[in-house]
Design a protein around this nucleic acid. Structure first.
Lengths: 195, 195
DNA sequence: ACCTGAACACCGTTCAAGT
DNA sequence: ACCTGAACACCGTTCAAGT
């Protein structure tokens, strides 16, 4: 099984690791398991990527690049910024196993890094610059990160919870994210002035 | 060493585990290490708390209760809600090792659970009810969770990052959190009407 | 330069057995 | 009911040794 071994290099190890996590979840990412997947001895992986932490960093960075393809929609600057921000959330949720892995490893911010550029462009197009632009960007990232963590909460395998059920049960997390994002976008991005 | 063994029960195991994490960080929490700390065989811990996940759940729940003491300040409803919300953030940051453990385990929302009651009371005092109240509460929790994750980002031991440095270097995370919270609080909580 | 077998020092968890 | 020694089935990582 597995691909016909062309040569094996750093990038192929990272790609296979991502594939493994997508297929079998974050817990399946084991150096030995990954080695088996590549038909290779375990130390080989260390030779190519250094360590498990470095591997995860490389994986998240790659995933970050892959997420940057979603088109930004909307007519007004506020709508476009909101769209770009929601794209961060939607993309990360779509590959939830990789996002979960990033969260567990404290690499959530790294996952959003390449997407920040898209968002930044929209913010500048909306007329923001300097500190105002950075503040807006950071605020939006706070909301996206929080929304991701709370959405993937039950992806963790912890015991159930009583009261949280009443607060989050049947809650539309996409709508919550949009609404929260709208609040901070409206706060930072100027809207249409009535002529 | 250690306390004179009174009896050893579920709560003492949890308390000792919390103490260990506060003193030596999240990674020090090992069943064997905890057993040593309690002068007890490893299986004894399993007898009292069931498993590592159940232990962490109990720890986070206890920590959640301990965080609920901060006083709410402010004159207007908006100020009081903002104060209560920021208290969630400040309390969790003050015990960052426990918060980090909760994040890694996907129990962040559990950590904030007891604090939600305080926040809920302020929201209701501000005149919110029903869905509007729940929406406001959930939005605020999104922001607090995101702020926590981004603040504790470097608590993880992942390799450094280049561009993120320019975006987050020298950034006042408390101010960012306050500002982002203000945006969603203003969005949800009605302000003073000019008479 | 690239890859390996074998080992080191750990994990979480279980289980028969003790009192 | 409460506690243990010893084991099972894993981990991440290293290292001498191969080609």
């Amino acid at each position: 099984m597995g691909k016909t071994a062309t040569k094996l290099g750093h990038d192929e190890v990272v790609a296979t690791a991502l594939d493994l996590v997508v297929r079998e979840g974050p817990d399946a990412l084991t150096m030995r398991r990954l080695a088996t997947e590549l038909d290779v001895g375990t130390p080989t992986i260390y030779w190519h990527v250094g360590s498990r932490d470095e591997l995860i960093t490389a994986m998240v960075r790659t995933q970050s690049r892959r997420l940057a393809d979603r088109p930004v929609t909307g007519g007004t600057p506020r709508e476009r910024v909101l769209s770009a921000a929601f794209n961060l959330y939607a993309g990360a949720i779509e590959h939830r196993s990789v996002t979960s892995l990033a969260n567990q490893s404290g690499a959530s911010s790294l996952l959003l890094q390449d997407l920040e550029a898209v968002l930044l462009a929209e913010l500048e197009a909306a007329g923001l610059a300097g500190d105002a632009c950075g503040d807006a960007l950071r605020s939006i990232l706070v909301v996206v990160t929080g929304a991701l963590v709370l959405t993937l909460r039950d992806y963790a395998h912890l015991p159930e919870d009583d009261r949280a059920a009443t607060l989050w049960a049947g809650c539309d997390l996409e709508a919550l994210t949009t609404e929260t994002l709208r609040a901070v976008v409206h706060h930072h991005v100027p809207g249409e002035e009535p002529t």
